[in-house]
Simulated assay, not measured.
Amino acid sequence: MQPHIPYRSLDVGDRADADERGAAQRSVWDLLQMGDLSRADAWDAYRDNLRWVLDDGVAPLLENIDADRVVLSSDHGEAFGEWNLYGHYRHVPAAALREVPWIVTSATDSGQLEPEVEPEEIHLTDDTINERLTALGYQ
């Protein structure tokens, strides 16, 4: 789970969502920009998602692998009104979007978790990998 929208603690739509009439719902960013959601409430929702990811995703991983060096990072940031931007955009040099965390730590396997299913080996062609990266906006 990414720590960005949708925020689990806010019951609002996403620009990609639509109601039964097909009208787009207002996103967190729309509400924030129009003043219908405070910056503090938006940040609280962001932090709630981040805590959720760290506590329920990253922490169990760090307790169940052995690694001298583990890097935690992100693919992008989000703007909460900086440069009058809300959300995240490609090709915008705003620090809020470009500067991402880079945390170096370690991990020790406590043996608490045992996988129930052996991971299936997946083989992808370079073309498939490039298509997927392009669809995500990375190429």
Rank of each mutant, 00 (worst) to 15 (best):
L97P: 01
A94Y: 00
Q112F: 15
G87S: 01
W83K: 12
Q112L: 14
Y7S: 05
V28R: 01
V70P: 06
R39E: 01
S9I: 08
D14R: 15
R90C: 04
P115I: 13
I122R: 12
L37Y: 01
V70K: 02
D19M: 10
L97G: 00
R51Q: 07
W52C: 15
V92R: 11
D19Y: 05
Y46I: 05
V53D: 02
E121F: 12
V58W: 07
M34C: 13
A95E: 03
G137M: 05
A23L: 11
D109M: 04
E20S: 10
V92L: 10
G57P: 09
T125S: 08
E99S: 11
L31P: 08
E82V: 07
N130P: 05
D55E: 14
Q139R: 14
R69W: 11
G13W: 03
S9N: 02
A135E: 11
V71E: 00
R69Q: 10
W83V: 15
W43S: 04
D75M: 06
H123R: 15
D14A: 11
Y138H: 13
N84Y: 07
R98A: 04
V104R: 09
V53R: 08
V104D: 06
G22P: 05
L136P: 00
L72S: 00
V71G: 04
H76F: 05
V28S: 04
V71P: 02
V70F: 00
W43Q: 09
L31G: 01
E116I: 15
R47T: 12
L133Q: 08
I129A: 03
L37S: 01
W43I: 14
D55K: 14
W83R: 12
D68V: 08
E78D: 03
L54W: 07
R39D: 03
W29I: 12
L54H: 06
W102R: 15
E120R: 13
S9Y: 00
G81N: 05
E99I: 12
L31D: 02
A45C: 00
E116L: 14
H4W: 11
V100H: 00
G13K: 09
L136V: 10
G57H: 09
Q33I: 13
A94V: 10
W83M: 14
L136D: 08
L32F: 04
Y89L: 12
H123N: 13
A107H: 00
V58Y: 02
A42L: 05
E121L: 13
I103W: 06
E116P: 15
R8A: 03
Q25C: 04
Q33A: 14
A79I: 07
L136E: 07
V117C: 02
L37C: 03
H123P: 11
E63P: 06
D127E: 10
G22V: 05
A79E: 00
S106F: 04
R69V: 11
L85Q: 03
H88G: 01
E63I: 09
E120G: 11
S38D: 06
R15E: 11
Q139V: 15
A24E: 14
Q139C: 10
A42H: 01
Q25G: 09
L136N: 10
L62V: 06
Y138P: 14
E118T: 15
R39T: 08
A42I: 06
Y46W: 09
A24C: 09
A59E: 07
Y7T: 12
E118G: 10
L113A: 05
D66R: 09
H123Y: 14
G77R: 03
A135Y: 09
D126R: 13
A67C: 00
V28H: 03
E118H: 10
L61H: 03
D75G: 04
A107R: 02
